[in-house]
Design a protein around this nucleic acid. Structure first.
Lengths: 161, 161
DNA sequence: CAGGTGGGTTCTAAAAAGGAACGTAATCAC
DNA sequence: GTGATTACGTTCCTTTTTAGAACCCACCTG
């Protein structure tokens, strides 16, 4: 399967990965959440080639995850900012960071800590059920094919997930 | 920066992506959570080449995210199962799926729904603060460099995130 | 005018992925 | 007991991506 076909898959995970599923995109977005906005700042922080950076920024703008807005005319200069859609990737990033803190940190522990300003504590994210508030575990979640989907697809033999 | 160097970065996100940060790995893990365990099942469901599948499974086993265990001798056959470390990636996958459900679904809506068996409802995951229980938003979370880290790194000019 | 900055694009070489065929050990169908 | 099938890879070759460095252009500074 080609990269460009991923967003046609009947699977929300595959479609999401068609936007953020490569080595660099999520690291760029991490920096966006840390306040980085300009091409040369990304380049200096990221150890990424300019070529790939320009390509990823273009794709993120096309996907409406970032927006490119001018911050100066003459010469025209742009900055990249998270859209609402982009900001909604925050739980994804925090989940990844949390897992890395647990399993990939060296003996010095994780390099960064997250403080929840609302309550003042150092925090970790926990994923809970929006309905009952209990933590979600794989054992307790079952997956059902949507009825609309079944109807729309009928007998096409689609693999879905 | 090369792929293999990512796990040395002083950033838990980068280190996590050194394990799961490519086009296929998370899709393979999705299938693991759906109960898929054997090479040919992955192959049939995934539209992935055998070459890449074998490589990713090997890397996931090396990273202790999956374990390879025999389910039959003569001829010896193995299956791949999530370890505890692998199961802890569940919030990552669910966050990605949730975002895809919101932003990447077509007019028919998302293909799969998730039912929380504990409470019986169709559910979405919400990321909350482990300390106070409120949802975590990027505006309300600030990032601090760990004191241990600062000490250990002293003045090396590391870019961290 | 020389040099620097911001934001790219173009070039070539290396790495990764796609696609198909091949290998192998056992088992099944006839 | 020959031939096909299953399970699980590996090999070979082609196409796509990435890395790495150089180049370009508009403007600004001195």
């Amino acid at each position: 399967m080609r990269w460009e076909d991923l967003d046609q898959e009947p699977c929300s995970l595959a479609r999401t990965l068609s936007v953020v599923g490569d080595r660099w995109t999520l690291i760029i977005l991490r920096d966006c959440f840390l306040g980085v906005r300009r091409f040369d700042q990304f380049e200096a922080r990221l150890g990424i080639t300019r070529h790939v950076l320009a390509d990823r920024l273009k794709k993120l703008v096309a996907a409406d995850v970032l927006e490119k807005r001018p911050y100066r005319e003459r010469p025209i200069r742009h900055e990249y900012r998270l859209t609402a859609k982009g900001k909604d990737l925050y739980p994804v990033i925090l989940s990844l960071v949390h897992w890395g803190d647990q399993y990939m940190a060296g003996p010095e522990g994780p390099p960064l800590r997250h403080r929840h300003r609302r309550c003042g504590q150092l925090t970790q994210g926990v994923l809970i059920c929006a309905e009952c508030g209990e933590p979600l575990t794989p054992q307790e979640v079952s997956v059902e094919e949507s009825a609309k989907w079944r109807a729309a697809q009928s007998a096409t033999g689609d693999r879905s997930g």
